[in-house]
Simulated scan of single mutants.
Amino acid sequence: MIKKILSGAFCISLFTFSYAGERPSTITTAVEVQPFQQIPKTVIIKTKKFKIRIDKQPNGKYLYQSWAANAKITSKPSMIISDGELIPDGSGGNYYFRFLNNGYTYEVWRNYLTDSASKAPYTLSVTDDNDKEIVNQDGVVVKQ
């Protein structure tokens, strides 16, 4: 009987000492992942056929304006689309802007991480309401 009591006391003291050094687990909160590059408030890109300006609006949405490639950006835009959104693409910093206009989806992709060193920094993609791509043009930064 004494052996059982001593054995029980020994086990309790052993467990007490082994757990005495442990610290309580801390609760972690979600951390916002920042891309490697800052997203500009305004960017102007030029593709083969278009000049495109994208501006962040005070409400957090984005504004898309486009002109013919040879037009001056100070002239009236040929197209204006408001309420665009920024969509992150993966964890490497790529993202794209999406704008919806009369059944068409305009996406301007920012290509930070690509499989080719010669890939343009931006790509314009326009699809119709059947998800058929009707425009796909690479673009370079005119002003950021």
Rank of each mutant, 00 (worst) to 15 (best):
1 M>D: 13
2 I>T: 07
2 I>S: 05
6 L>C: 09
7 S>V: 06
10 F>N: 01
12 I>V: 14
12 I>Y: 10
14 L>N: 02
15 F>D: 06
16 T>S: 14
17 F>K: 03
21 G>Q: 05
22 E>F: 14
23 R>L: 13
24 P>N: 11
24 P>C: 03
27 I>T: 15
27 I>P: 00
28 T>A: 13
29 T>R: 10
34 Q>H: 11
34 Q>G: 02
40 P>I: 11
40 P>Y: 03
41 K>R: 10
42 T>K: 11
42 T>G: 04
44 I>L: 13
46 K>L: 08
48 K>F: 05
48 K>S: 11
49 K>Q: 14
51 K>T: 03
51 K>A: 10
51 K>I: 12
51 K>H: 09
53 R>D: 00
54 I>E: 02
59 N>M: 03
61 K>C: 02
64 Y>M: 06
65 Q>V: 02
66 S>F: 02
68 A>M: 12
69 A>L: 00
71 A>D: 15
71 A>Y: 03
72 K>Q: 15
75 S>G: 07
79 M>F: 11
79 M>T: 13
79 M>K: 15
81 I>F: 05
84 G>Q: 04
85 E>V: 14
85 E>Y: 01
85 E>R: 08
89 D>C: 10
89 D>Q: 12
90 G>Y: 04
90 G>E: 08
91 S>I: 03
91 S>M: 06
92 G>H: 00
92 G>I: 02
92 G>S: 07
96 Y>D: 12
99 F>S: 07
99 F>V: 09
100 L>E: 13
100 L>T: 10
100 L>I: 11
100 L>C: 01
100 L>A: 14
101 N>E: 13
102 N>H: 14
102 N>W: 07
104 Y>N: 10
105 T>Y: 04
105 T>N: 05
107 E>V: 02
115 D>Q: 10
117 A>K: 05
118 S>L: 07
120 A>V: 09
121 P>K: 08
123 T>C: 06
128 D>N: 15
130 N>S: 12
131 D>H: 09
131 D>Y: 08
132 K>Q: 13
132 K>S: 09
133 E>F: 01
135 V>M: 10
137 Q>L: 05
139 G>V: 09
139 G>F: 08
140 V>H: 04
143 K>T: 08
143 K>N: 12
143 K>Y: 09
